[in-house]
Each structure stands twice: as structure tokens, then as C-alpha cells.
Amino acid sequence: MIALQNVSKWYGPTQVLRECTLSVARGEVVVVCGPSGSGKSTLIKTMNGLEPIQHGEIVVDGVKVNDPKTDICALRAHIGMVFQSFELYPHMSVRNNIALAPIKVLRRSETEAYKRTEALLKRVGLEGHADKYPAQLSGGQQQRVAIARSLAMDPKAILFDEPTSALDPEMINEVLEVMTQLAGEGMTMVVVSHEMGFAKSVANRVIFMDAGEIVEDRPSGEFFSAPQTDRAQQFLAKVLHH
């Protein structure tokens, strides 16, 4: 579904991704973790072409992301993305946040898109909130709307960039529950997260990054019981401690 081959990226003189190679199969859930600044956000943003790369190859759903001939917008239409800071459109109601892209990109009728919106809101536990504006919702609710927004495009995979790290502790679970449910339904997911409980119970694999490098890429059970590298051990000791 998603395959990266020797991907490198620089911001000016500083290299932020070093020869990253990984693949995510259909229906797989992969958690990406690592210290701050290790390149996790950059890595998943390369997967839908939000960040260009200077070297390597990325193939998503059989399409070369960095080929100039690729219609990157068409690819993004069926790869969802959920951001740390939600990024709902503040000037639109929840309904329009969710229905905008289905109407404009998939050319669905308003009636159809709005009907779908109601169903999606129900799915993320926010029935009856369609007419509200993002500012009227709690962080956890906003993030669930953001998930509904990406589901509205019938995505083949969803990329999550620290979906719970901007949330108050009591709201983290309501978002993780929705994500767990998605994983159970067979959604392909790449999740940048420090939620080790979620990684342990839901992820098939854990990728550990440090300084732009993929240091470990292992089945999640193995990663937690016996991390191979010192760097991963130190990192785990730190995050599990909290």
C-alpha cells in the first residue's frame, strides 16, 4: 500500500531524513515513534507529497508520489491525513468541514454528501453536532471531526500525525477509541504517536526513528519486549515512565 525506498530529505544544509526504507501493507497499522525532531512528521508528510523529497522513491497505492507526471491531488483524495492541531476550517460548520472535499473533489451532490456526513458523525460519536463551528467543540471532539473529514473521502489509508498530543489527558481516549475501531475495520493506518498503550494493543508494527533515521522496524510485541538498540531502549524508558 505504502512503500518508501531510500528516502532522503534536506532542509537547506541539514538532512532530516536519512535513507528511510519502509513498507506498509494493506490493512496494517504502523506506529511511528521517536524523540522530538527525529523526522516523524516529515516522514509521514512525504507519503502524501506534502513534503517533497530529494532522493529515493515513494509508491503509494501503486502511484509514484514524486513523479512529476503524477496527479498528486488525485492521490491525496484517497489518502486521509489527521493533524496534531486538528486543522478544522474555523469559518465552516462541522458539516461543511466534512462535506467540502467530497463535494468539490469527488463531485458528490450536496444531499448525498450531507447524508454521508450525518452517518460519519454518528460513527465518531458526534451525532447532532453538524451545525456547530469548530470553536464550539472540545479538542477531542474536534479531532474526531477531523477523522470524520478524512473518512468522508473513503480513504484507502489514513496518516495520523500525533493525533492526541494536543489533547487534555481526559480526551485522549475518546480519540484513541475511534482509531482503534478503524483499525479493527481493516483501515491501513500510519500513526505518529507516543501513545504506547495504543501501539502495544493496536499496532502491527512499530517504527522507531532517531535523527532522521529508521532505527527499528519491528512487530510491536517484539519492539516492546526486547528493543534491539540502545537508543530505542532509552526512548522507551523515558516515554513508558510517564
Binding site: 508528510k45 491531488c73 491525496r76 489518502i79 492541531s85 472535499a101 468539490k104 473533489v105 473521502m153
Partner: peptide
Amino acid sequence: PRGQFAAGLATGLRPRM
């Protein structure tokens, strides 16, 4: 915020849109 632009692009909207 720049994230708004990224969020729109991520749903498949064209930059002009």
C-alpha cells in the same frame, strides 16, 4: 496558519481551490 493550507491539500483539493 500554514496548517490550514496543508489540511485542504491533504483532502485532495487543488491549491487554487
